[in-house]
């Protein structure tokens, strides 16, 4: 626990996301209080790739939604770039990617990516330029005029990522974005995501229940345990970057996966 406290403190005050004693309790209709998160402390540095890892019910999605201002915590304090999540959301500094691609079926790929730019009321020309850039970034230039149903699941999720990045957000929030994809597509997208991350330098908060995925992607993995959801460990991922498929076969990789898996056993 002492190590945990030290790690949270080490990122200090210039943290991009600063979470202090966050708690979340749901009130059911029956008048019952269900604690979803209790006393979470976490600091995420600018440009960091951090994973929230845990089994279902550990509150990882709840924590992400609190950062995104989609949920209000019942206790504690959270600051994003020195402001409240609400202020950050109103300034349109969040990009969000959900578990399902959440594409609008009546819009082509191009127009799906353009959606947040339309809301920002950017000039038409800039919208076009950004959409083209995003299509190129996720490797879908030839599919701009296709409708979502014409794409595979992996391609749809790429569109979701392109849309999230189109507004050039400060922070990219990803809620189990690859969990519905097959293993091959998933591994390809992992490398793509890291490549995009290197290019864009975004701070990424990545929710997952897949240990290997969190190890492969992250700078740090935050392990959450259920009943009630709490932060039980933060593991530094010391693997070299840039990470390619070979990283998965390094002994350090397996060791880190084993270490994180072990941290769940006491729960």
């Amino acid at each position: 626990m002492a190590e945990l406290a030290k790690q949270t403190a080490s990122a200090g005050t210039n943290a991009e996301i600063l979470i202090e004693h966050i708690g979340m309790t749901y009130h059911t209709d029956g008048g019952e209080d269900v604690p979803a998160l209790s006393d979470v402390n976490l600091s995420v540095a600018k440009g960091e790739f951090i994973s929230l890892l845990g089994p279902s019910g550990c509150g990882k999605t709840t924590l992400l939604r609190i950062i995104a201002d989609l949920l209000q915590p019942t206790s504690g304090k959270i600051q994003v770039a020195g402001e409240t999540p609400h202020e950050v959301r109103m300034q349109k500094k969040y990009g969000i990617v959900f578990q399902s691609p959440v594409l609008y079926d009546w819009r082509t790929v191009r127009r799906n990516i353009r959606l947040p730019l339309e809301i920002m009321k950017l000039p038409k020309q800039e919208q076009e330029a950004r959409v083209n850039h995003m299509l190129e970034l996720v490797g879908l230039t030839e599919f701009g005029d296709h409708y979502p149903f014409e794409l595979s699941g992996g391609m749809q999720q790429r569109v979701g990522i392109a849309r999230a990045l189109a507004i050039n957000p400060e922070i990219l929030l990803m809620d189990e974005p690859f969990s519905a994809l097959d293993e091959f597509t998933k591994e390809k997208l992992h490398e793509d995501l890291l490549r995009i991350w290197r290019k864009t330098n975004k701070t990424i908060v990545f929710v997952t229940h897949n240990i290997a995925e969190s190890v492969f992607l992250s700078d740090r993995v935050c392990v959450l345990s259920p009943h009630p959801g709490r932060l039980s460990a933060i593991v530094d991922i010391t693997l070299p970057r840039p990470r390619t498929a070979e990283v998965r076969s390094l002994p350090e990789f397996s060791q880190l996966v084993a270490k994180i898996r072990a941290s769940f056993e006491g729960v």
């Binding site: 109103m90 349109k92 959900f98 959440v102 809301i119």
Partner: peptide, 18 residues
Amino acid sequence: VAKDRKDLLYTYAAKQPV
């Protein structure tokens, strides 16, 4: 209308008419 479709627009601070 699926909730995450609305959440998406909420994240972009879209106003009700939008």
